[in-house]
């Protein structure tokens, strides 16, 4: 019932909102203008996903997704702290973005054709290349996902995991019983209590979950990765300027890492002669202005939040997740930024 009302509320709010057409004044982007007028970026995150977005003991949202929200706030407003985090569930996240309740959705959301074609939303980039995995208890004695015939599996509804697990079992001619619970802590309880034999979601979340468990040695990640799950940040269609800004905020983090620029050493590059770096730091060219924000947007992102590698270390290395395919392209990974010029 509560979910129904929240969805309905979002719908009514969406219906009452004025259309998304860009106004003539300001940056040329309705979303950027709204963020500047509000003095705050409203960012939809998971809110209970270790490594991506989870409040720490002081109530500050921590994780890769949360830091990306901060980076966009730094790029738009020049201040990484001016973010309002809105926790969303897997089932209400798209409605929250469609209706304008949030400006940006960074919520471990898999980039798929269906979502981009049907939802009126766009993926601006991939901040984590992930894949669906399985976790079981060691006591079960299972070594491979193919041994899970007849198993009961805990999955969050409305996720691409749900479809990936269905496909995997269908292809391998195995049977399973799904237990679908929207609330993540409830779902994990069901797995820990033994209601389910296995818990399936993105490998990164399994690793993060395992790392936060007191009995982590009793939990085993199965070796199979059964799907590609590129997790990205989403914006509404129809505001290309804001889309550009979000995409280049991500690229700026990658370019900074590639050039060895970190939040600590960035000021030592103030008199650099390298053209790419001078453009990154806003010393040369009108890169920021072309995007509708300050020319020093990338400087603010790196200085206040950090480059891609720093963000990874803060959120993922702390949980013991290896970087793997999420490394830069020149270090064997998939993360690659076009030139800033």
């Amino acid at each position: 019932m509560f979910r129904l009302t929240s969805v309905l509320g979002a719908l009514v709010a969406g219906a009452l909102l004025s259309g998304g057409a860009a106004r003539a004044d300001g940056s040329g982007s309705a979303t950027i203008d709204a963020i500047k007028a509000r003095g705050q970026l409203v960012c939809g995150v998971g809110g209970s996903v270790p490594g991506f977005a989870l409040p720490d003991s002081q109530g500050v949202m921590r994780g890769l997704d949360a830091d990306f929200c901060r980076a966009v706030a730094a790029a738009t407003l020049g201040d990484a702290t001016r973010v309002k985090f809105v926790p969303t569930t897997t089932t209400n996240r798209f409605t929250a973005l469609q209706s304008g309740e949030v400006d940006l959705l960074v919520r471990t959301t898999t980039w798929t054709l269906g979502r981009e074609a049907n939802l009126g939303l766009l993926f601006a980039g991939v901040n984590y290349y992930d894949g669906t995995g399985f976790m079981v208890k060691k006591a079960l004695g299972v070594k491979s996902a193919k041994e899970l015939d007849g198993a009961t599996i805990c999955i969050q509804p409305g996720t691409s995991t749900e479809l990936a697990v269905g496909d995997f079992f269908r292809v391998n001619k195995l049977k399973f019983t799904p237990i679908l619970i929207a609330d993540l802590p409830e779902l994990r309880n069901a797995f820990l209590s033994g209601r389910c034999d296995a818990y399936s979601t993105d490998g990164s979340q399994l690793a993060g979950f395992r790392a936060t468990q007191p009995n982590k040695d009793d939990l085993v990640l199965l070796p199979e990765t059964i799907s590609k799950e590129p997790l990205g940040m989403m914006v509404r269609k129809g505001d290309d300027k804001f889309f550009d800004l979000v995409r280049w905020t991500h690229f700026a983090e990658l370019i900074a890492e590639e050039a060895g620029v970190t939040s600590r050493n960035i000021d030592s590059f103030a008199d650099t002669k390298l053209p790419e770096l001078r453009r990154l730091l806003g010393l040369e060219g009108d890169m920021g202005k072309a995007l509708g924000v300050d020319n020093r947007f990338a400087y603010n992102v790196v200085k206040q939040v950090g480059n891609a590698g720093e963000n990874w270390d803060r959120s993922m290395t702390a949980l013991g997740v290896p970087r793997g395919i999420n490394a830069l392209w020149n270090k064997g990974g998939l993360q690659y930024a076009p030139p800033m010029r």
């Binding site: 309905l8 719908l11 089932t91 409305g158």
Partner: peptide
Amino acid sequence: LAVAVGYQDVVSIGNTTLNQTGQAIEGI
């Protein structure tokens, strides 16, 4: 309220459907 305890009633399946297809208004 079935959705809270993982029983797949019409709200649970309807929510999943509108989430997978993006047809929120039709689903509701």
